[in-house]
Design a protein around this nucleic acid. Structure first.
Length: 503
DNA sequence: GGGGTGCCTG
DNA sequence: CAGGCACCCC
């Protein structure tokens, strides 16, 4: 399962290949569902495809049959069926349904790997989910029926206009070739074809919309979900050592306890420099989050699926990303923690730097720490504090991994391969919030890969029942500690202390 | 015994 | 995040 969603965006190209210029025109000009603007929404796309394919087939059929049935049926009233009107109506309805489907899909997608949801019964969620699926299925059927009706009308138009299918849709709203259209209910006169059509569409669509809306309204999750909480009913399945660490409060971290970062350390300067470039922002995912809980700042949306380029540069990527620094963007600074440089003691700036370094190294050796915190006077205490920091970082990291993998398991994910961690994953958001709270740094794609591997390790271990063993995480730790990445040289800079200049 | 790690707690 | 503790390894 990909939590970033599959790329099922509506395919304009496919539409443009449809026969019949008039149909093209109508497709391209009509208001569309959010599938066009908001990215992957499988359900709406499915409907779109059905509509396209079926209409396409019907049009072709109509073309083949030519005028054979042109004389059939009665001539509709002049204003009885305005093809543009019918089209508009149908498309408006379709857009409405697609909108709802989009919302539901998005809601589901966003919820798949979200926090467990305090007080939100897992079984109830599953129940609602299956209910939703049923509703969607029902809706699909109804939409399918609608499209059949539309196709019949399209056929009629095509037949009246002969092979000139496009013209049937274009310039003559008064001329409607619905001569072969037979109202199913048989109670309507051909003269009121438009009304019949509207009624038919309206009734079905309203039913669909209403039922979906009902389910959707119930599906809305509670407004507040503690990010680190676990449903109480699940802790029983956890080993004792895990249980205690699960209901941690969301880490508020240092931002509230000391001044905001005020300078641009080199490892941040690199980011900012790149951020100024359009190339960087090309990678920015601008997908709008429907849920307010997931509203991302523009900065926060700078994650995207790790591209092939990144994957091809596993070693050099990290440093490459942070080379070409702009020295002017930072100044050898005044410590904002009022500690003169050279004096022992770790500052909030060091903490921030350490957190960013965690993107590259989970198990830094003391030698590494000495290398990258060259402005720190190391002693036994400082070293152990720094080591303790990384221990805490790891703890948070692994807790999230376990939490999300359990969530995936309970959500019905069947295999670890279905789990992916992309930049717009909820998991990535949570991790970024912890290690990069100010959101002024780019998550290295390698870290996303490490996270994904870790997530899968946890998932498969849990699904195999390994968590019954009290030390079941050890084997995972052994895997992860081999996934260290090169730390960008920019982190070696002793000028990692913040300046007094506001960003 | 010192260093490192993980777990738990506050 | 820090302190405390147990555990492991060299």
């Amino acid at each position: 399962m990909s939590f970033s969603g599959t790329n099922l965006k509506l395919e304009r190209l496919e539409e443009q290949q449809l026969e019949g210029p008039g149909y093209q025109l109508s497709l391209q000009n009509q208001p569309r569902g959010c599938g066009d603007m908001a990215g992957p929404y499988p359900d709406s796309d499915l409907i779109s495809q059905w509509l396209r394919r079926s209409v396409k087939a019907k049009l072709a059929e109509a073309c083949d049959s030519g005028k054979s049935s042109q004389e059939d049926g009665e001539v509709p009233a002049k204003r009885g069926l305005d093809p543009e009107g019918a089209k508009d109506f149908a498309w408006a309805k379709r857009a409405r349904v697609e909108n709802i489907v989009c919302s539901i899909s998005s809601s589901y997608r966003d919820g798949v790997l979200e926090e467990g949801g305090a007080g939100y019964s897992r079984s109830r969620r599953a129940q609602e989910r299956s209910q939703l699926k049923q509703q969607l299925e029902k809706m699909r059927e109804q939409v399918f029926q609608l499209q059949e009706k539309l196709c019949q009308i399209y056929s009629g138009v095509a037949q009246e206009e002969g092979s000139n299918v496009g013209a049937a849709w274009s310039q003559e709203p008064g001329r409607v070739g619905a001569s072969t259209w037979r109202p199913e209910r048989g109670s309507r006169h051909p003269g009121t074809l438009a009304e019949a059509l509207k009624e038919e569409l309206g009734a079905a669509m309203t039913q669909v919309v209403d039922t979906v809306m009902q389910v959707f309204a119930r599906q809305q999750p509670p407004p507040e979900e503690p990010p680190c909480s676990y449903p109480s009913d699940q802790t029983e399945a956890l080993p004792l050592v895990v249980r205690k660490s699960l209901p941690r409060a969301p880490p508020e971290l240092v931002a509230g306890t000391f001044p905001r970062p005020m300078a641009v350390p080199p490892y941040l300067a690199a980011f900012k420099d790149r951020a100024a470039g359009e190339a960087y922002w090309e990678a920015v995912s601008l997908r709008t989050k429907l849920s307010s809980r997931h509203l991302l700042q523009p900065h926060c949306a700078l994650f995207q699926l790790a591209g092939p380029t990144d994957r091809q540069l596993p070693k050099s990527q990290a440093t490459e990303t942070h080379q070409g620094l702009e020295p002017a963007l930072y100044k050898p600074s005044i410590s904002f923690s009022s500690q003169p440089q050279g004096r022992e003691g770790l500052t909030p700036g060091h903490l921030k730097k350490a957190k960013l370094m965690f993107f590259y190294t989970r198990y830094p050796s003391s030698g590494t720490l000495k290398t990258y915190f060259s402005d720190v006077k190391f002693n036994r205490c400082i070293t152990s504090q720094l080591i303790k920091w990384f221990s805490n970082f790891r703890e948070f990291f692994y807790i999230q991994m376990e939490k999300f993998s359990r969530q995936a398991l309970s959500d019905g994910v069947l295999s670890a391969e279905m789990l992916t961690v992309t930049r717009d994953s909820e998991l990535a958001r949570v991790l970024n919030q912890h290690y990069n709270k100010a959101n002024d740094y780019e998550i290295p794609s390698k870290f996303l890969e490490v996270s994904q591997i870790t997530l899968r390790e946890f998932f498969s271990a849990i699904s195999r029942g390994c968590d019954a063993d009290p030390s079941w995480k050890k084997s995972i730790y052994k895997v992860i500690c081999k996934l260290e990445c090169d730390i960008p040289d920019a982190f070696k800079s002793p000028h990692g202390l913040p300046d007094t200049v506001h960003e």
